[in-house]
């Protein structure tokens, strides 16, 4: 758990990135009115799956979308949460799309599915701590 605490502390000092401007050529429609996902599975299917795939195995082309299936990085619960909160490389921060409860739900979901078996649930408070709230 030392690793976990150190990582969380480090993240606390990093400001969450401001919401990115969409910019460029966009559809020009108003905010989407479709009902938001609630459960971890719903969040995974409606958000994460768009890149990480239905089987969570990611994909390889000119670059690589990492697999979440059988991913030992997920042992540290702050790892998936920080990825969702901060993004990495092409992956955007998703805090403009997901609230702490949704992030906690989906982090718990990926840590307990796709060949991952890290049973301790991620709590909303853990997410808020990493977001510096």
């Amino acid at each position: 758990m030392i690793k976990h605490t150190a990582f969380a502390l480090l993240l606390l000092t990093v400001p969450v990135l401001a919401q990115a401007n969409a910019g460029g050529d966009t559809a020009g429609s108003s905010a989407n009115t479709t009902a938001r996902p609630v459960t971890g599975e719903q969040v995974y299917v409606q958000v994460c799956q768009g890149c990480h795939m239905a089987d969570a195995k990611g994909g390889v082309g000119a670059g690589r979308i990492p697999a979440l299936a059988k991913n030992s990085n997920l042992e540290d619960p702050s790892y998936p949460v920080s990825m969702i909160v901060q993004g990495r490389g092409a992956m955007p921060p998703l805090t403009d799309l997901l609230n702490p409860a949704q992030i906690a739900a989906v982090a718990t979901y990926v840590r307990t599915h796709f060949g991952n078996n890290y049973k301790k649930p991620v709590k909303e408070a853990d997410v808020k701590a990493i977001m510096g709230q």
């Binding site: 989407n32 479709t34 938001r36 299917v45 409606q46 958000v47 994460c48 799956q49 768009g50 890149c51 239905a54 799309l97």
Partner: peptide, 8 residues
């Protein structure tokens, strides 16, 4: 959000 849903 709409694009993520369709992409998945």
């Amino acid at each position: 959000a709409g694009a993520f849903r369709l992409a998945g």
